[in-house]
Simulated assay, not measured.
Amino acid sequence: MTGRCYFYLSYGHSVRLRADDRPGGDHWAGKLFTELSVEVARLVGADRRAPVGFCDNLLPPMTDWRTALPAALGRADVFVALCSPDYLTKGWPLRERASFAGRYADPGTAERFQVPVFWVPWPRGEHPGERAAALRLGAGIPEYADEGLQALTRLAMHRRPYRAVLRRLAYRIVTLAAEAPRPAPPAVAFDRVTAEPGVPTGILFTVAVLAPQRSDVPPGRSPRAYGPAPRAWTPHRTGLPVARFVADVAERLGQPARVVDRPGDLALLADGAALVLIDPWSAATPDGLERLSGLATRIPAWATVLLVADRTDPQYAARGARLHHTVADTLVAAGIARQRIALLRDADRLVERAPSLIDRACAAYRRTAWCW
Rank of each mutant, 00 (worst) to 15 (best):
Q114M: 14
A180W: 03
I173S: 00
E111G: 14
A41I: 01
L69K: 09
S99E: 03
Q114G: 08
P142E: 12
A139H: 15
A81W: 04
L94K: 01
E96N: 03
L176W: 07
A41S: 06
L69P: 05
Y171V: 13
L169K: 02
G108M: 04
P93V: 10
R48D: 08
P51C: 03
G129D: 12
P60A: 03
I173V: 08
G140F: 11
I173R: 00
A164D: 10
C55R: 06
L137A: 02
A72M: 08
R172W: 07
P121T: 08
L88T: 07
R66D: 13
V165C: 08
D47Y: 10
A184M: 12
G129W: 10
A180M: 05
N57V: 12
R159T: 15
T63C: 01
E147C: 15
L135A: 13
Y87V: 06
E130Q: 14
R167G: 05
P181L: 06
P181K: 09
R48C: 07
F113H: 09
L169H: 00
P107M: 02
D146H: 15
R136L: 12
Q150A: 07
A68Q: 06
P93R: 06
G53A: 01
T63A: 01
T63Y: 00
S37M: 01
P181G: 06
R168W: 05
P70C: 05
R124L: 08
E179K: 11
L176S: 03
A98F: 05
A177W: 00
A164Q: 13
G91E: 08
A156N: 11
L169W: 00
A41L: 06
